[in-house]
Design a protein around this nucleic acid. Structure first.
Length: 527
RNA sequence: GGGUUCGUAGCUCAGCCAGGUAGAGUACCGGACUUUUAAUCCGGCUGUCCGGGGUCCGAAUCCCCGCGAACCCGCCA
């Protein structure tokens, strides 16, 4: 069997970029500037999966540049989309704005000019923190400036053909009647309710009536307004089934990834681009959606949504990039509990990259190194100090006050590291947040009889004394015995009180580590 | 109705997309270790890789057929 040739840096990203280049070559298109696109939803709070689309597209851009081509990422915000439903956790008054473009709805958080801008800013903020560079393009500006006017014209004059094809491809029949264009009603400011029924090609104007529509199971009444909209400058937008194609041609897009939920739309758009607009559709890659743990939407109570902002409270930007660049296929359930693994995995990659760990398989080494390079956006610098994340979480659970210095001291005692560093301090902060938010100490119900109670109060007074007791381990053992309490039971109760666990580290030194006065006050809460 | 993904240790999963000795965490057992308790560290144990066929010198990995599970589309964007 012949040896497989390694493409680029050996990752799926390189392979995809290579396929893209081959395709462009066979189409005979110019490759002076290869643009990749990512669509950003602006209708809800962006999940970490929403970042994936842009981050992966950026990976392709990096690979293309690595091959010696110029490339840029266009981040297109769908902020002319209408609000279809109120995302969970957002105020009820938004219902008055259903079907209005998200860019014309006030920001419920009060910090941006509009709802849409707030949402897309969250996403862009996530990209900025990861170091992803992009050219931002707003849907609102795109239509207001008539950037798609030629495509809209061509699509509307071919609407019959397109409507039939949509019905054939996906079984959706509405576009055999309605035009695939939604004007914003000049009277009530909503789209979807205004139905376009006639296109006047010479004037490039569309006739519509705001007669209402259904969104999901809800019926939305129109305001009855009849109007005429100019497709070159009035507000309105193409239906998704044809809009991508228009964008691809107008912006000369050569690559776009997509989630499997819009598979059908992409199929239609590819056909529209190829057959109606005469622009060979971009290279695609399909990815699976990120699901919440459990395979379904668990409690989407606010704060439990996996946003990049929340992730970065516990993990580094590189842990997100690793998650997104590791692979593209496969269904994945994602949650904050994946952070420790990814943190440690990144460090392992780093050790392999810098030769501290050797793999026996040469191909694998190449690919792992390539992955590390992409996670560092092809600019790896030097190894950073690291401590196992789980160990840090455990230590942070024990030390809550004056955490950084106490955990650092313990790590040096363990011999895990030699000296403090700002990188480790940062890790302690992240792991500390993780410990605080996900391993909350719960005050457990502990069954305490009279004898034990007496013993506990005796212990509490010893602990709160000014002088530190010598050999605390032995002292505890003795006071239990002298009160007629089984040491075994007494130890268990102490662990329950201090750690909310049945067992724990050796109790004497452990109490001193936490601070004996603090333990004394914790114990007194149970007396 | 159409489509996609998943099935690997008791449990949770990685490895598959570019084939080359079956892997982690957890659980369990033992040790460092003290008057029994081990957070931490070290060592050990754990397999019908869902079933069947095919390609190959070689398959958990690639192809085909089943079985089971989940998700998406068939509103809209």
């Amino acid at each position: 069997m012949e040896e497989q040739k390694i493409i680029g840096r050996g990752t799926w990203i390189d392979k995809l970029a290579d396929e893209l280049l081959e395709r462009e070559k066979s189409l005979g298109r110019s490759t002076n500037m290869i643009r990749v696109e990512s669509g950003l939803g602006a209708s809800g709070i962006p999940h970490i999966g929403s970042l994936g689309d842009a981050v992966r597209a950026y990976g392709i851009k990096l690979a293309l540049e690595n091959f010696g081509f110029k490339s840029e990422l266009v981040a297109y915000s769908d902020d002319l989309d209408g609000l279809r439903k109120i995302p969970e956790g957002l105020p009820d008054w938004l219902k008055d704005h259903i079907a209005k473009p998200v860019s014309f709805i006030p920001d419920p958080f009060g910090c941006h000019d509009s709802y849409g801008l707030h949402m897309s800013s969250l996403l862009l903020d996530g990209l900025d923190k990861l170091g992803i560079k992009y050219k931002f393009q707003r849907g609102v500006d795109t239509y207001r400036n008539g950037l798609l006017k030629d495509q809209i014209h061509t699509i509307l004059t071919n609407n019959k053909k397109i409507g039939e094809k949509i019905a054939e491809f996906v079984g959706q029949e509405k576009y055999q009647e309605a035009l695939p264009y939604f004007p914003v009603c000049a009277n009530c400011g909503r789209l979807y309710t205004a139905i376009a029924y006639e296109y006047l090609p010479d004037e490039k104007k569309i006739k519509y009536k705001c007669s209402g529509t259904t969104i999901g199971s809800k019926i939305l009444d129109g305001c009855g307004h009849e109007g005429i909209a100019d497709i070159t400058k009035d507000l309105g937008k193409l239906a998704w089934k044809v809009e991508f194609a228009a964008r691809w041609q107008a912006f000369d897009i050569r690559f776009e990834a997509y989630g499997k939920d819009i598979m059908d739309s992409v199929k239609v758009n590819d056909w529209v681009a190829d057959e109606i607009l005469g622009f060979q559709h971009p290279t695609h890659v399909k990815y699976e959606m990120f699901l919440d743990k459990g395979g379904k939407k668990i409690s989407k109570s606010l704060g439990n949504v996996v946003t990049s902002q929340a992730w970065l409270r516990y993990g580094t930007p590189k842990s997100i990039l690793l998650l997104l660049y590791k692979r593209i296929t496969g269904a994945r359930e994602i949650g904050f509990e994946d952070i420790p693994v990814l943190m440690d995995e990144y460090h392992e990659l780093e050790n392999i990259y810098f030769g501290k760990i050797k793999l026996d398989n040469e191909n694998k080494t190449t690919r792992v190194k390539g992955l590390y390079e992409y996670v560092n956006l092809l600019k790896p610098s030097s190894p950073t100090p690291y401590v196992n994340y789980r160990l840090l979480v455990q230590l942070c659970k024990i030390f809550r006050e004056d955490r950084t210095s106490k955990v650092t001291k313990k790590l040096i005692e363990y011999g895990t590291m030699k000296e403090p560093s700002s990188e480790i301090d940062e890790l302690i902060t992240l792991a500390g947040n993780y410990a605080d938010d996900f391993d909350k100490p719960t005050k457990v119900e502990v069954q305490i009889d009279a004898m034990t109670k007496k013993t506990l109060s005796e212990l509490a007074s010893i602990l709160s004394a000014e002088k530190e007791p010598e050999d605390l381990q032995n002292t505890i053992y003795n006071i239990a015995k002298s009160n007629g309490v089984q040491p075994k039971d007494f130890f268990r109760i102490l662990y329950q009180i201090i750690l909310a666990a049945e067992r724990g580290p050796k109790i004497g030194p452990f109490i001193l580590d936490i601070g004996r006065k603090k333990v004394a006050s914790t114990i007194s809460e149970y007396l």
